[in-house]
Simulated assay, not measured.
Amino acid sequence: MSFSVPSIDISAYLNGGSEDSKQAVAQLADSACREVGFVQVHGHGIGDDVIAGLAGAMDEFFADKTVDEKSEFRTPPGINRGYAPPKSEATSLSLGVEPANKMNDFFEAFNIGLDRSYYPDVELPEDDYQENVWPSETFREPVLRYFHAVREVASVLMDVFEDALGLPDGYFAAKSHAATGTMRMNNYALTPGLEVTLDGDLRGMGEHTDYGVVTLLWADQVKGLQVLGTDGNWHDVSPDDGALLVNLGDITARLTNDKWMSTLHRVKPPVVDGTIQRRRSVAYFHSFDWDAVVSPLPQCVDAGEEALYEPITVHDHLHAKLQGSRAGVSNTSAVRESSRVRASL
């Protein structure tokens, strides 16, 4: 069975396209979300200069700073902000899949996100809207420029998804008065002084599904990202020229009773001549309000079919996932996803 990631152009939603053109986009999105769970998104409107600024800021931090300098911005596992060094996480634990060496994901990362200052008129818990840390203004400015741009694209995708699912306008906005969102900048490269065994089991990022509503990914066109297809095999995926790779998260799978797929994926860093070829990626994880309750939509539960998920708040769902990947506490509630991972290994 061949595997490919479908492409859609969302410019009709950005540029005031006709209802017919929008409906055509929504239908393509529906098919992609049902059949693959990943999509190449074109026409997103983020300029090349914005992406170049983001990439330059990442190089400034990951490539130009020493291990000690980067570690000044490390935060505890309970704080989903700042720097995470290599081998400090195990993403597969978010599904309850135990790796051979507990915290062994090879990537290093820097996280920012929406904090309470974005919603000054709303009383919000700090745990869900944590303060950002910034290494420098030359890092902060281009990163925030991209962050605001990709948030706008996420908002447009919510409109596409409403149309694709036949939901009324504003359905998702009602769950997003104070939307939660985190952006993770990932770097896959050998860190000087870090001892790593270059073997076939090396994990760039372990098998996982994303936790939120939808993920928007900018990435280098370097091999490494792999997606688990419905054929049970892992397939290499890289972004098209100029495209964002977009995939669904667990919350959307819950809403659609698994009609739309939160697809399993992982990163296997390519080893070339005994070294890892550097790969950069930036994932924006869009989600709803911290206290929004998520359960299957009635129209997504067919006659004679049972709801696959109990209602859960965004906070409780994300907390269980992050306890796995960042704090090493295996998530025991992801039974279906973990069984799919084990069957593929």
Rank of each mutant, 00 (worst) to 15 (best):
H286W: 12
A84F: 08
P269D: 08
D231P: 08
G37L: 05
G229K: 06
R326A: 08
F73M: 02
V160L: 02
L93G: 00
A29K: 04
S155Y: 08
V267Y: 00
R145M: 06
V122Y: 06
D220E: 14
G37A: 10
V341R: 01
A334V: 08
S117L: 08
G113H: 06
S330I: 03
A334Y: 07
T66C: 05
L202R: 07
Q226M: 11
S94I: 04
M103F: 12
A173S: 13
P298E: 10
S295L: 12
R116Q: 13
G206D: 00
G78I: 01
S176L: 05
V5I: 13
V97S: 00
V272M: 07
L297F: 07
M185T: 04
T252M: 15
E98V: 12
H235V: 07
V294P: 03
H286L: 13
E305S: 11
F3C: 02
H319D: 13
L198P: 01
S333E: 14
D236Q: 13
H319C: 04
D9L: 01
V329E: 00
V97K: 03
Y13L: 01
G16F: 10
F285Y: 11
G181K: 01
Q130E: 09
Y284R: 06
T275G: 14
L95S: 04
V282E: 04
V50E: 12
N104I: 00
T197M: 10
S176F: 03
Y13G: 01
M261D: 05
I276R: 01
R184H: 03
E131R: 11
S262T: 10
L144S: 05
A173I: 01
P120W: 02
V150W: 01
L165M: 14
Q23K: 14
V246M: 09
S7D: 11
S295P: 04
S262A: 15
A26L: 09
T191Y: 04
D121M: 08
D302Y: 09
E19L: 13
L93D: 00
K22M: 13
W134F: 10
A189C: 11
S295W: 10
E108H: 03
R336K: 13
K259E: 13
A55S: 13
L202M: 04
Y171Q: 06
V196I: 15
A29C: 12
T197V: 15
G78C: 06
L217V: 12
Q130M: 10
A55Y: 04
T256E: 07
Q299F: 02
A52G: 01
F161R: 00
E137F: 02
G232L: 11
N101W: 00
R266G: 02
Q277P: 04
S262L: 10
P85L: 10
V50G: 03
R254F: 06
F73K: 02
V237D: 07
A109V: 05
G224E: 00
S287G: 14
Y309K: 06
T91K: 06
S338Q: 11
